[in-house]
Write a protein that binds this DNA or RNA. Structure first.
Lengths: 369, 369
DNA sequence: TTGAAAGCGCTAACAA
DNA sequence: TTGTTAGCGCTTTCAA
């Protein structure tokens, strides 16, 4: 152990410049709290207190400091603040594809609601790439986020990736992890959209209109939302006495418009025209409608369509798609509330099931014959 | 000036725990570089070097360290790194509305390309709110981003907000600011999409098909992209001998689907049916098509439509919209290249005009009569 | 109401 | 090849 000298009063360059009296020559140098303190003739502690608005500063001193802060547009260095406080008020929000309006909408709701709690958010966009998701989770951890919320990707998988689970488990030792979906073997707070209800709403609506030849299109069996829908759909076939035909359950492994198009083309090629179609999301619905239109079928005259998610796309397709919608605000409120409660070590509900509802627009009507 | 004692070897708690020999009881305490160093029996410098992969570490030592890093899933604290290096490899990307696929697409291209340069991005989503934009710019500065790229909002305004300009000017003293658009009085690197070319492509295409009654719909006169389009459109009316009717230039002040719908309704109500419509973006186009469809008009049989931006929406509307498209990758490559050049103080081009091109799909054909 | 000093976890210049 | 040490800019005791 040795004794070392430390110049008091801040970073070396400032301490020196103070002695050299060249404080005015700051040029393009970044302003720090030391500059403000020097110019205001107070200690950095006082400036720090003024900036934090902790009230322990004389009104006059406060004004003097703030005037200088304004003058230089001073922005305290976040990295230094985070390091000093050893914590942040940032929630990392991971989504699997920000270009998808479903996730974009969830994200902006998270952003909005987090702000009401005094938190900010940072987006991690995994681009639908499970490997990249690992990297992003590491990055969020490195950024010292106070909590992580995840939509899609690994938390939608029917069988969770073991390595990802291990990583999340380690993370959760000091960082709350909250998901819209689930992660096998991880006891984290969850908000789940009830897909069974969603499919039931859709099928019931169509059955009541008189449809029996109903197809379910889109998604991947390896993802919970699609899997769940398919399971419930199969069950409802008996309940409502629908036409039972495996070709009417097309799970192409993807939820893109291209996938929807392909499925529809295949059905048409096989001569198996359903009277109504339930599409797993709005992209698939768009593809299905392209195919229908190319073959001269109209919606809803020839075929009815119900979609999921109620993104702006569903308003735009045809004369507006009937759709299974969710209270996005509610989902995000619940997620953020859970995250904040965990961060602040308060008790809270750890699971929430959100029930979808149906919005009837102009893509469904009774079958022709 | 006083002499003060400082315990060597890192944060106090580690130095103490070293003496108390309770290193194993780390529990949920966050792992730091000190823990790794202690367990590996080396100095933190060596660990730091191993993590940075600077090559100056013996292979054996390196492996030993990395094994321990893996074991604990150790993530070095970003805040500390940023503070120590006094710089980041992060580019802040500000967009005015991430829910808009145009911006979402730009953002993911920026993300992708930045990564190729070894930079990461953080998204700032101003939600179309100019006041919030100020706040976000401050936040980006506080986060010590290496550069800021902005799409939309203030950099689209015909007349820039003076306060924002002042703020950016201050920021630019140490942080490159690069825009897709322009900011009055700010000499920053810019990439501009040539909207005049865009409108010319659209009008030429329609004129060649035989259209003379062409309407331009959507946008706000206070925003450059729409303004520019309107100016060039007016010029082309003479060039191509188009029908001159002020009602055919509908600039509702917004680019939403609702705005497009309203404009179209108004035109129809006035009995002024154009034979072709140029829509300022895909949202407006969607609204226009809703209105047309509600009145029994078909695209392209009764009316042709050309849209702008070529987002996925344009693929989905009708049988696919003919659209003015851009090389998104090129735009973002140029922006990132400029930003990185400025960060690394290299010379570069400071302005780039990107020329749009036309994608013909199924929403345009010769007029009926 | 203010200030001095220590500490947050990391990097890098310098020394060994 | 490795270690020692100062410093990054801020917050937060503790003392005055």
């Amino acid at each position: 152990m040795r004794m070392i000298a430390r110049l008091q009063g801040g970073p070396l360059r400032y301490t020196i410049s103070r002695y050299l009296c060249c404080g005015a020559a700051m040029g393009s140098q970044k302003i720090t709290i030391y500059d403000i303190a020097r110019e205001a003739g107070v200690s950095i502690t006082t400036v720090s207190r003024a900036l934090a608005n902790s009230g322990k500063v004389k009104q006059e001193t406060y004004s003097r400091i703030m005037r200088i802060v304004q003058k230089y547009h001073f922005q305290p260095n976040e990295a230094a603040r985070i390091l000093a406080e050893s914590k942040t008020k940032i929630i990392g929000v991971m989504v699997s594809q920000i270009e998808n309006p479903f996730y974009a909408h969830m994200f902006i709701w998270c952003e909005r609601i987090a702000e009401m709690y005094g938190y900010s958010t940072i987006l991690a966009n995994s681009m639908g790439n499970l490997a990249y998701e690992h990297k992003l989770l590491d990055k969020l951890a490195a950024q010292q986020v106070a909590a992580v919320i995840q939509f899609g990707g690994n938390v939608d998988a029917c069988v969770s990736d073991a390595e990802y689970v291990a990583k999340v488990t380690k993370l959760m030792r000091h960082t709350p992890f909250v998901v819209s979906g689930k992660l096998d073997g991880v006891r984290c707070c969850r908000v789940q959209i009830n897909d069974s209800t969603g499919i039931r709403l859709a099928v019931t609506h169509l059955a009541q209109l008189g449809h029996r030849r109903i197809a379910l299109i889109g998604g991947s069996e390896r993802e919970v939302p699609a899997y769940q829908k398919a399971v419930e759909f199969r069950r409802l076939i008996d309940v409502y006495g629908l036409c039972r035909d495996e070709d009417f359950i097309c799970i192409p492994g993807s939820s893109s418009d291209a996938a929807g198009y392909e499925c529809m083309e295949r059905l048409i090629a096989k001569g198996k025209m359903p009277s109504a179609i339930i599409s797993i999301n709005d992209f698939v619905a768009a593809g299905v409608m392209q195919s229908l239109s190319a073959h001269g079928f109209s919606v809803p005259e020839d075929v009815s369509i119900i979609s999921f998610d109620d993104t702006f796309i569903s308003r735009m397709l045809g004369r507006g798609l009937t759709t299974v919608s969710y209270d996005y605000e509610l989902v995000c409120s619940a997620l953020i509330a859970m995250a904040v409660s965990e961060i602040e070590k308060r008790t809270q509900e750890s699971f929430r099931l959100v029930e979808p509802f149906l919005i009837c627009r102009s893509s469904t009507r009774p079958p022709k014959n």
